[in-house]
């Protein structure tokens, strides 16, 4: 496989959860990500729904994945190789080309499709940044 393949997706790779627990990448469950985000404090898990999958215009050979992210349903598009695995809630590892993922990483994958909801992370918003009316903030102090 090309050297640039991220080795943390290689079957058997050891992953450390925020709780300190060690697990193999192929054994991870949805709960592991959710609990790790809770424990780590600075990170938040977002549900990102795949709304469109296209071949990337800018970078041939890559796939453009269109997501709606989190409660605000903000639109985010990323270009990834078709074999790049994503963790889908309640389903596990999935990619646009499960055969290639299996060949390159040895990781068994479902076929990623529009409508799948993937685990993604973003920075935890510190509370005061949320848009709360001013008076309500004063009462809290």
């Amino acid at each position: 496989p090309a050297p640039s393949n991220p080795s943390h997706f290689m079957k058997g790779a050891i992953i450390q959860l925020a709780t300190g627990e060690l697990k193999r990448v192929e054994d991870l469950q949805t709960q592991d990500f959710v609990r790790s985000a809770e424990v780590s404090g600075g990170l938040k898990i977002d549900s990102s729904m795949v709304v469109d999958i296209r071949t990337s215009q800018q970078r041939p050979g890559l796939v453009a994945l269109h997501f709606t992210v989190g409660e605000q349903q903000s639109k985010v598009t990323i270009d990834v190789p078709p074999e790049h695995p994503f963790f889908v809630f309640g389903q596990g590892w999935s990619s646009c080309s499960p055969e290639r993922t299996g060949q390159l990483y040895g990781l068994a994958c479902h076929h990623l499709q529009v409508g799948d909801v993937c685990v993604s992370i973003t920075l935890q918003q510190p509370p005061q940044q949320q848009k709360q009316p001013l008076q309500q903030q004063q009462q809290q102090q």
């Binding site: 991220p6 080795s7 943390h8 997706f9 790779a13 050891i14 992953i15 450390q16 959860l17 925020a18 060690l22 990448v25 991870l28 592991d32 990500f33 790790s36 780590s40 990170l43 898990i45 977002d46 990102s48 997501f67 992210v69 605000q72 903000s74 639109k75 985010v76 990323i78 994503f86 963790f87 993937c118 685990v119 993604s120 992370i121 973003t122 920075l123």
Partner: peptide, 19 residues
């Protein structure tokens, strides 16, 4: 044996300023 942090496995999808 290398150990990888859990968050390196999931994409960081924050809305870009243009959203």
């Amino acid at each position: 044996v290398p150990v990888f942090p859990w968050h390196s496995l999931v994409p960081f999808l924050a809305p870009t300023q243009s959203d």
